[in-house]
């Protein structure tokens, strides 16, 4: 499919992020998110995936982080270093890592907070929509969120983000610490949201296998840089990704030190 430039919803051009003025976490990350697609961001711990998301959503500020270089273009305008309130009002919503519901609010109140960006508009219909996507929430409307199970919490925080009508949804490790069946269910719902609502999604994952099954395009990060990118299908077949992220070694052969070296060399060049 031919991509025209206006189809790009979000573009990161060579951005650098520095925490507390000294710790450089991102070193020139560029990526492109086409409208209406699911883009997956893979990488091991500390690669800078979460930081990338926070750079987009403006949540770096409270952590004393800053985009020092490069630009983030969303829907044709530069948004780097805006405050989170402004960014969420433009239609970007991030779902934080590690399921952070408001523990002392009920499920329904939690969902209501999701309407903060447009709290004078009607919201009953959205509530129905969220309950439709996440049926388990329906029967726990009045429960304190702190007493829900992990899967319900994940559904809750995603539902809460949906209440904001995001154009761009940033999901940070939705599968973290969940049972495989629940993970599959959640990924199915992510796919459905993308198809039915047309929401563009950036998906950060450790679970590369699942992520690449539903994503259209993928980026691999290492040490604050993008080291590899490609169509999801291509990435899935890539021997390096297979070996290092999917945990399948090529042809079942024992890994030799030489292969690792060649991969490392390649990484340096990328």
């Amino acid at each position: 499919m031919e991509e025209r430039p206006e189809d790009t919803l979000l573009q990161l051009n060579n951005i650098s992020v520095v925490y507390s003025d000294v710790i450089q976490v991102l070193k020139g990350v560029s990526l492109k998110v086409p409208r209406g697609r699911i883009v997956s961001l893979l990488g091991s711990n500390g690669a800078g995936k979460t930081t990338t998301l926070k750079a987009i959503s403006g949540l770096l500020k409270p952590e004393n982080g800053k985009v020092t270089d490069g630009e983030i273009v969303y829907d044709g305008s530069r948004v780097q270093n805006l405050s989170p309130e402004e960014i969420t009002r433009l239609g970007i919503t991030q779902v934080l890592e590690g399921r952070q519901p408001f523990k002392y609010l009920t499920i329904e109140e939690n969902l209501k907070v999701g309407t903060a960006t447009r709290w004078l508009k009607p919201w009953k219909k959205d509530l129905e929509l969220v309950y439709d996507y996440f049926p388990p929430l329906t029967k726990r409307k009045k429960t304190l969120a702190g007493y829900c199970s992990g899967g319900e919490m994940q559904m809750l925080v995603m539902g809460r983000a949906l209440m904001a009508h995001p154009k761009l949804l940033l999901l940070d490790e939705p599968s973290l610490g969940l049972a495989p069946l629940v993970v599959r269910e959640i990924f199915r719902i992510i796919r459905r949201i993308n198809e039915e609502q047309g929401t563009t999604i950036v998906l950060v994952e450790q679970n590369a296998n699942m992520a690449l099954q539903i994503a259209h395009y993928g980026y691999v990060m290492e040490n604050g840089k993008i080291v590899m990118e490609g169509e999801a299908a291509t990435l899935r077949e890539n021997p390096d990704v297979k070996e290092f992220y999917l945990g399948v070694s090529a042809g079942g052969l024992a890994r030799s030190y030489k292969d690792v070296k060649s991969y490392k060399r390649r990484k340096r060049w990328l």
Binding site: L59, P62, E85, T93, Q100, L105, E109, A116, T117
Partner: peptide, 24 residues
């Protein structure tokens, strides 16, 4: 009231409230 719920959400988890666009 929405504002009341927003206030409670901020007290509960500031970062999460911020990520949803609550004007902390």
């Amino acid at each position: 009231s929405p504002q009341g719920i927003f206030m409670r959400s901020v007290a509960d988890n500031q970062t999460a409230a911020m990520s949803l666009g609550v004007h902390v």
